[in-house]
Amino acid sequence: MKKYGILLIGCGHIGTQHIEDIYYRDNIDIIAVVDTNEEKAALTASKYGAKDYGADYKAFINDPRVDIVIIATYTATHLPLLRESLANGKHVLCEKPIAGNYEDGKEFYELVKSASQKVLVALILRHNKSYNTIKSLIDAGEIGELKVMRIAQSHHVTDWERHKALLEDTSPVVDCGVHYFDVMQWFTGAKICEVSGIGNKVEEDSPRANYTLATVKLNNGCIGYFEAGWSNTIASLNVKEFIGTKGRITLTLKDLRYSDREEGDLISIYHRDNREYKTLNVDSEYKDMNAQIQTLIDMIENGTPGSPTIDEVFSAFYATIKADEAIEKGTVIKI
């Protein structure tokens, strides 16, 4: 079995989530971890057994021991880090979103399309067992034709400075919306064709609107919304509901269950005809980072297209960029 040498760039919240789920796997070898805060990089290296660490990725980007670069940094750095990784012959697992604006996103997309190396963008819900279960139920006609998708994910923040830094890069509808716009297109097999929405700055010192509600129409007639906010005053909210002509499916993550959390996520299915409910327990890891990197390794070894493909990634990204524009301008945009 080949062991893949990993360079992790970014030892913050999401970078740590990546490495803690993969460092002990049989086909993974952590070569180096990098962070602009070298003390944080040293701590991460010590905790997860990295062979080296530093504050500058350039010291490791051309290391022949490195096969895969994990980019877990702020959005504005994704494109230049991708460019350098590919130039040095490395495969890439890059956090979402691919960019904070259309021009950089388009360049990212074109680089991936023309590269001989494999690139996977971290739309983690593609690797989540609960979402894959819901996708299978919808495809099997469990709730009839899917008509409405209600998705909300708002955070009552306790570290405002961290979220302010995220808002400097991009808005909630782009940063988190890429996940759920992708889910909407994945579950329906359709494309988002129209976006609109509303937004506001809840904190005076927020760099941009930190509450957004985007509405979408898909080209098969399905509609949906995605509500997201990061604020000191907004209540945390998590809604995942998929409504069809014969019923609905609701997802409750295990940490949000009132009881029986040890059973995993709860999928509730309501059938209209007999007014009955059915429940499924799914032992699902919310961010299955190992499943994600194994998908990239399968792309490398077997030439599989990956999930999502870069075309699917860019489609969801472009829809969020246009939704952000629609919210800012107070208009409806057809895609």
Rank of each mutant, 00 (worst) to 15 (best):
K96Y: 00
L8I: 07
T245Q: 06
A326G: 04
Y270I: 09
P305Y: 14
Y277Q: 13
K2P: 07
S236R: 05
S46Q: 15
A41F: 06
V34H: 00
H91L: 02
A50S: 03
L213S: 01
P97V: 06
L213E: 06
A76D: 02
D255K: 13
K201M: 14
L167V: 12
H18N: 00
P308L: 12
G264Y: 00
E262P: 04
E20I: 09
Y211E: 10
L43P: 01
K47M: 13
K278D: 15
Y258R: 12
A140G: 11
D260K: 15
M184V: 07
D26I: 07
Y286S: 11
I134K: 12
N37I: 15
V178A: 02
N132V: 06
R248T: 13
H156K: 13
A59T: 08
G141E: 12
H78N: 14
E312Y: 09
K217D: 12
W160E: 14
I14F: 07
G10Q: 03
G264L: 01
R261L: 01
K217F: 06
G330H: 13
L166M: 09
S116D: 15
D29T: 13
A115N: 11
Y211C: 06
D298A: 14
A190I: 13
Y270Q: 03
W186N: 02
G141K: 06
E204R: 05
I327Y: 03
P308W: 04
T44D: 05
Y225K: 01
N101M: 02
Y23S: 13
K278H: 14
A316P: 07
I68H: 00
K322N: 07
T331N: 06
F226A: 10
V313D: 07
L146E: 03
E161H: 09
H13C: 00
N219F: 12
Q292A: 12
D104G: 04
N232S: 12
E241D: 14
H13N: 05
E241L: 09
L123M: 12
I138Q: 12
L266H: 00
L266M: 05
I297F: 01
R65C: 07
V34P: 00
P97D: 04
K58L: 09
V66L: 01
L137G: 03
L296Y: 02
R248C: 08
K322H: 06
H91T: 04
L167F: 11
L280Q: 06
E161I: 08
K191E: 04
N37Q: 15
G229L: 01
E145Q: 11
Y286E: 07
V202A: 12
N302V: 11
G306Y: 14
Y23F: 15
Y102A: 08
D205S: 04
C94F: 05
T16A: 07
D182I: 01
